[in-house]
Simulated assay, not measured.
Amino acid sequence: MSLDRRIHFFLCLTFWISLVLGHMIDVKAAQKECFFEDLHVNDKMTVTYQVGAGGHLDIDFWLGDPLDVAIQKDFKSSTGTVSITAETDGRYTYCFSNEMSTLQDKVVSFNVHGVIYVPDDGTIAPIEREVRDLAVGLQAVKDEQEYIVIRERRHRDTAESTNARVVWWSIFQAVILFCVCGWQIYYLQSFFEVKRNY
């Protein structure tokens, strides 16, 4: 591999790595959060998102091209993956909308990753192709791990909430039991006292 090819390979890899982003945001009730990426023709971008907390764990998602024409719309989704290949140069916008909720804030975790298009004119080495394929596979594994972490957090919160409810219900039952026992003792005692008076 010549020096020019090595430099070209490492520049492409650096650009690809720079397109990988992971975020966790709070989307306030009745609000919308928007982000953008500047893409060129044939660049690829994938947005993976999941609602981690708030309300019914749903969010509206919108992805639009540079002319603000909707490419993808998801309504009340708790998780989703959207992949596009840019057909024109420009700024592609994606938004998470919580406008349907007037009370509940939502926590959204999302990843954005992409591949900058480099025309394959036969000069790309097979090892570079393999590295690109491995990078795409590694990103898919990373997305899946983040999805699992968020689900585990959600299940743990549900288990802790259920545990707290069981504890309070048990305390309530114990208080009711003591009250009923106290009332029965008092009633029986008063019953026998009344019998003695006759």
Rank of each mutant, 00 (worst) to 15 (best):
G122Y: 01
P126F: 03
I150V: 09
H155L: 15
R153Q: 07
R156P: 03
R129N: 11
V131I: 15
A140L: 08
F110I: 04
V131R: 05
R129D: 10
E160A: 13
Q104N: 05
V131S: 08
V108C: 02
E130W: 07
V112L: 10
D121G: 10
Y117G: 03
A140C: 04
L138S: 09
E160H: 11
V118P: 01
T123I: 07
S101Q: 00
Q139E: 12
V108D: 03
Y117Q: 04
Y147F: 13
E128N: 09
E160L: 15
P126M: 03
R156H: 11
I150E: 01
R129T: 11
Y147A: 12
V131C: 10
Q139H: 09
N111H: 15
Y147M: 11
V149F: 12
E128D: 15
E144S: 11
L138G: 09
T102S: 07
R132K: 08
D121W: 03
L138I: 05
E130C: 05
D121T: 05
V108H: 04
T123V: 07
I148A: 13
R132A: 11
V112K: 05
P126L: 06
V149R: 14
A135I: 07
H155F: 15
D120R: 00
A125P: 08
A135F: 14
V149A: 12
E144D: 11
V108A: 03
Q145E: 15
T102Q: 05
H113V: 04
I148M: 12
A159Y: 13
L138T: 06
R151P: 00
V112N: 04
D120M: 00
G122A: 00
S109V: 10
G114V: 00
D133Y: 02
K106P: 01
Q145A: 15
E130K: 04
E160S: 12
K142V: 13
D133F: 03
P119E: 14
E152N: 14
Q139C: 11
I127L: 13
S109F: 06
E160V: 12
A125R: 09
Y147P: 00
G114Y: 02
